[in-house]
């Protein structure tokens, strides 16, 4: 019987929602939440002996000590396989699952597997070092994700030689292996080109990375004459959310006036971001969008002026495609209005 330890965040670990996101790592015996489906998928060959649970914020804010604490808990159950998540497109949970899998492999010498949506930042950060099954963006894909993770995990625990990422269902790790091909590279490249020219499907042998790299902007030469804009993905909106910004998976960004506003008040603004506890932002929205501090800078002549609008969206499970589109559209307006510098705040 293969001993399995399962890692979960506070939400899937059934401790609570954002109000419990700060909880420190803890271990409980037996499967919890998605661990039930995991146990079912593992069948009789393996047993989930314990579940280690850590709050999303606890992990994200102190990744190194959190990893050590989680590893100590996992080690105490002497696992032969560790399964983390799946994290789908959750932006704090994904990097935590990646860090746990990486540490389990390197520090405990035990195989580990997780599951994420390919756009999860945790996939970009850790896919080269770990085995990460490709999942859908949300927990609607739980059953398939857990089942694929179980199959891959059992193979890893048994020390089986794995096939290609496509065949096994995990995200490519950027490892090249020599194999025999019937045709030379030149012939394969020519075949690809011919297929492309004819509009037929073809598959590259060297996919390009999906995250864009942009050259850093030049420094602002004279802040004292510059217009500085504030943009946030922290979900700050006028109280009551009149334009119905989504709390997750935002489909839009919004623009609101800052004219005549010296200080963001909790009576007039709030956060609708569903990915962190809004208590502190609702008490004082300047904690997310620092209007008060920038007004002081404006008065002191440190900056020319604060741009008269702010842009806001919710960066919570928002797709890369939407995020890129929002960024491009916001930048167009800012450039057209002569803004020279932008401070983007993220929660």
């Amino acid at each position: 019987m293969i001993r399995v330890v399962h890692y979960l965040n506070q939400f899937f670990g059934q401790i609570g929602g954002e109000d419990q996101a700060g909880v420190a790592p803890r271990a409980v015996a037996n499967p919890v939440g998605p661990g039930m489906a995991l146990q079912a998928a593992l069948g009789s060959k393996a047993q989930v002996v314990a579940t280690v649970i850590c709050g999303d914020n606890y992990f994200a804010e102190h990744p190194q000590p959190a990893t050590e604490e989680v590893i100590q808990l996992i080690r105490s159950f002497e696992p032969q396989l560790v399964v983390a998540g799946p994290a789908f497109n959750a932006g704090r949970y994904g990097p935590a699952c990646g860090a746990v899998c990486q540490a389990v492999q390197s520090q405990l010498g035990v195989p580990a597997v997780t599951g994420m949506y390919p756009e999860n930042p945790g996939a970009e950060l850790y896919r080269k070092d770990i085995f990460c099954v490709e999942t859908g963006p949300s927990a609607a894909g739980m059953r398939q994700a857990v089942s694929a993770m179980a199959v891959l995990g059992l193979k890893l625990a048994a020390g089986e030689v794995l096939g290609t990422p496509e065949a096994e269902g995990y995200l490519p790790r950027g490892i090249r292996k020599n194999t025999w091909a019937e045709k030379t590279g030149a012939a394969r490249a020519a075949d690809m080109l011919l297929a492309k020219l004819q509009g037929l499907p073809y598959r590259t042998e060297l996919p390009m990375p999906s995250f864009e790299r942009v050259s850093p902007a030049s420094p602002v030469s004279d802040l004292s004459t510059a217009t500085v804009a504030l943009v946030t993905e922290g979900g700050i909106v006028p109280k009551g959310n009149p334009d119905r910004l989504e709390s997750a998976r935002a489909s839009k960004f919004l623009k609101y006036s800052l004219e005549g506003i010296e200080d963001l008040s909790g009576a007039e603004f709030q956060s609708v971001h569903g990915g962190y506890s809004n208590v502190f932002a609702n008490e004082d929205p300047d904690r997310v969008l620092p209007v008060d501090a920038l007004r002081d800078c404006e008065r002191e002549g440190k900056i020319g002026r604060l741009y008269k609008y702010f842009f806001t969206t919710t960066g919570n499970g928002t797709t890369l495609e939407n995020g890129r589109k929002f960024g491009q559209e916001i930048a167009l307006v800012l450039i057209a209005d002569g803004v020279q510098a932008v401070i983007l705040t993220s929660t």
Binding site: A21, N57, A60, E61, P63, G91, R92, P95, P121, E124, L125, F211, E212, R213, V214, S215, P216, A217, G234, Y276, S277, N278, V279, F280, A281, D284, D286, R287, V288, P290, A293, L320, G323, L344, T345, S346, T347
Partner: peptide, 26 residues
């Protein structure tokens, strides 16, 4: 932002570590 590793992963060029996730500037 607080999770600077995400800012690095998505390609931000100038990154300043924030105070905490629920109150980056508080």
């Amino acid at each position: 932002c607080t999770i600077t590793s995400i800012a690095l992963a998505v390609g931000a060029n100038r990154i300043l570590p924030a105070a905490a996730i629920p109150y980056p500037l508080g």
